[in-house]
Design a protein around this nucleic acid. Structure first.
Length: 298
RNA sequence: GCGUCGGUGGCGGAGUGGUCAAUCGCAACAGACUGUAAAUCUGUCGCCCUAUGGGCUACGAAGGUUCGAAUCCUUCCCGACGCA
């Protein structure tokens, strides 16, 4: 089976740098698996790797989407699979690197996503209803899925309705075995160190012109409302630029957002027993390298 | 110094005689996750236990009134504002 390396972990844990190092040694190319770095014009705000930091290693799936439009897992999965194929075709090692657990699982667990594209109008209309009512609508279309969806999660129920409308019912969850073999390396920092890194990273992004960057997007017609969805950093900068919060509130909320996100990432990753965890602050690079080496040889 | 308003759980903030261990929001902790996933959503959240029940300590402090007080009275301490 052909091999693919996966580097995942919490925000600011050092995934990108590790990916570049491994890519340079083993002859790899990086496929970003980050749901925000796909957007063009959101460089500083999503802590995108810079060309210099790439050190000659090709990076994929960065800057491929218009921030005005919504990018989705399904698109990611399709593109990532295409890139994996291409990279392997060049006799190089694909390295999936990022912090979006769902995106990574979509590829590594080969989750079969129903081929029903988002229906903007339907979502908008149904969004006005309450969860209880939505569940009733779903029950009529697909009683089975109605029993399993989170009954209070409108987003989920609406998607289920969307699928049921097109396919008659929501197909049961399927996860086909992947044609690739994956080695999952997880990076996890101790709490205090992670907090410090998040703070430092935030400072750097602010000084680096995160607000200016967002302002430019705004000038290009990205509505304020959209910033709310683009991530915690951009959300609070947008509120600050609109003078709805002050500078301190912005910084506090941004830190909190990053921190809570890091915790949420862990609850996702925790349930995957295949991940090999390392603490990058302990000089574990050699161990990781060894692990990768063995994986590639077998 | 006088006057007014106020002091509630980690924080903000309800409650103004019983149904209050105390609405709610935040944080915290745990978790879910079928094309929004940096999103969306759920549970727990004073302490202890033989735990869909029981006990203890609590609403600035100390007394008091009452069958019963976070809620009423007195004094004291602290804060904000007003008058001096």
């Amino acid at each position: 089976m052909q091999k693919v390396i996966v580097i995942l972990g919490q925000t600011t844990s050092g995934k990108s740098a590790l990916a570049v190092r491994l890519a340079r040694i083993f002859g790899g190319e990086v496929i970003s698996s980050d749901s925000r770095q796909v957007y063009k014009g959101l460089d500083i705000g999503t802590a995108k790797i810079t060309p210099k930091e790439m050190r000659g290693v090709p990076h994929h799936l960065i800057d491929i989407a218009n921030p005005k439009k919504q990018f989705t897992v399904a698109q990611f999965k399709k593109l990532a699979e295409k890139k994996i194929k291409e990279i392997l075709g060049r006799k190089k090692i694909p390295i999936l690197c990022g912090g979006t657990g769902f995106y990574i699982d979509a590829v590594t667990k080969n989750i079969v996503l129903p081929k029903v594209p988002p229906d903007k109008k339907l979502r908008k209309d149904l969004g006005k209803e309450n969860a209880e009512h939505l569940l009733k609508i779903l029950k009529k279309l697909d009683a089975t899925r109605a029993k399993t969806v989170d009954p209070k999660n409108k987003v989920r129920i609406i998607r289920a309705i969307e699928i049921a409308k097109y396919l008659g019912k929501v197909p049961s969850l399927e996860s086909k075995p992947s044609i690739y073999e994956f080695l999952k390396i997880g990076l996890k920092l101790p709490e205090e160190k992670l907090k410090r890194k998040i703070k430092a990273g935030l400072k750097k992004r602010i000084r680096g012109g995160m607000a200016v960057e967002l302002y430019a997007l705004r000038q290009r017609g990205v509505p304020w409302k959209r910033f709310m969805e683009l991530g915690f950093d951009q959300k609070y900068i947008a509120l600050y630029l609109q003078r709805k919060i002050n500078e301190k509130e912005m910084l506090d909320n941004q830190f909190l957002g990053n921190w809570q996100y890091a915790k949420r990432q862990m609850t996702w990753f925790k349930r995957d027993p295949e991940i090999h965890w390392f603490d990058p602050s302990l000089g574990t690079y050699k161990d990781i390298k060894k692990e990768v080496q063995e994986f590639l040889l077998n």
